[in-house]
């Protein structure tokens, strides 16, 4: 386990020494603060729009950070040949995959803490309330869902040689799932066989990340908390997909020539 944590530590160091996070964080702050200062139509409910916008920016930023950080991990190790001295140490390739995954996941957790803390301050400055449990449920499911995205991207980084193509493909897949994933079953119903079965199969195969995405409403519209049973089930659901992608990544990496 110490090997996995050592690898994760390097990934986290890389994230906070690069500019990506700071640029996205400052951009989110600037956009949201400007929006919060503008009074449109004297609408008392304007804070909801600001919250919605802020959460959308947090989601986009977190996805960009998660995907770009993960996509470059293994390709950069191969390109800069740091993979050779690393694998010459007494560790397995599975440990490398788990170390990279854990590092990216924990780094994204730290990013989310910063983003949601800013969001909490922004929302409280206008509403003077702290629905902490709502924030916790939304942020935690967001983080767990990012785990599945990171594992998917890690798998992609072993299949596609260029980090840019991997990032683009993963981003398109994730955005497609978030936006149209929930409508695939209804769409399948409108089709004739065999397309209907194909779309049903896709609907049941893809990770429905939009469930975590929908948790934004908990904060934006002050909806009641989801039951803790559903909360735990959603975590297990995301973790199951994460595990599947990670196992696939380990199997691909095991066969990959590193010379």
């Amino acid at each position: 386990m110490r090997t996995v944590f050592a690898l994760a530590g390097v990934v986290i160091k890389e994230l906070y020494r690069r500019k990506d996070f700071y640029v996205l964080f400052i951009l989110t702050i600037v956009i949201c603060v400007i929006m919060a200062m503008v009074n449109i139509f004297n609408d008392n409910q304007i804070i909801r729009y600001i919250k919605e916008l802020c959460l959308l920016l947090i989601w986009i930023s977190s996805l960009v950070i998660a995907i770009t950080t993960t996509a470059r991990q293994i390709p950069a190790e191969r390109e800069q040949r740091t993979l050779l001295p690393l694998l010459a140490k007494p560790l397995t390739r599975t440990q490398v995959i788990f170390g990279k995954f854990l590092g990216c996941w924990l780094a994204c957790g730290l990013v989310l803490i910063c983003f949601y803390a800013f969001f909490g301050v922004l929302a409280a400055s206008r509403e003077h309330t702290w629905p902490l449990l709502n924030y916790f449920q939304a942020a935690f499911l967001h983080w767990v869902m990012l785990g599945a995205v990171i594992a998917l991207t890690l798998l992609g980084s072993l299949v596609f040689a260029a980090p840019s193509s991997n990032s683009t493909i993963c981003f398109v897949i994730v955005v497609a799932i978030l936006t149209i994933g929930r409508y695939l079953d209804a769409f399948a119903l409108s089709l004739a066989e065999p397309l209907r079965s194909v779309f049903y199969a896709i609907y049941f195969a893809i990770p429905h990340l939009e469930w975590a995405f929908g948790m934004r409403n908990l904060i934006v519209h002050d909806w009641p908390l989801i039951t803790w049973n559903f909360f735990c089930l959603d975590i297990l659901y995301s973790l199951a997909y994460t595990a599947v992608f990670l196992v696939a990544a380990c199997l691909v990496f095991r066969r990959k020539a590193v010379n």
Binding site: V10, E14, Q80, R81, T82, L84, P85
Partner: peptide, 8 residues
């Protein structure tokens, strides 16, 4: 010809 983690 190896380049180590340049941010470390």
């Amino acid at each position: 010809m190896t380049y180590y983690y340049k941010f470390l």
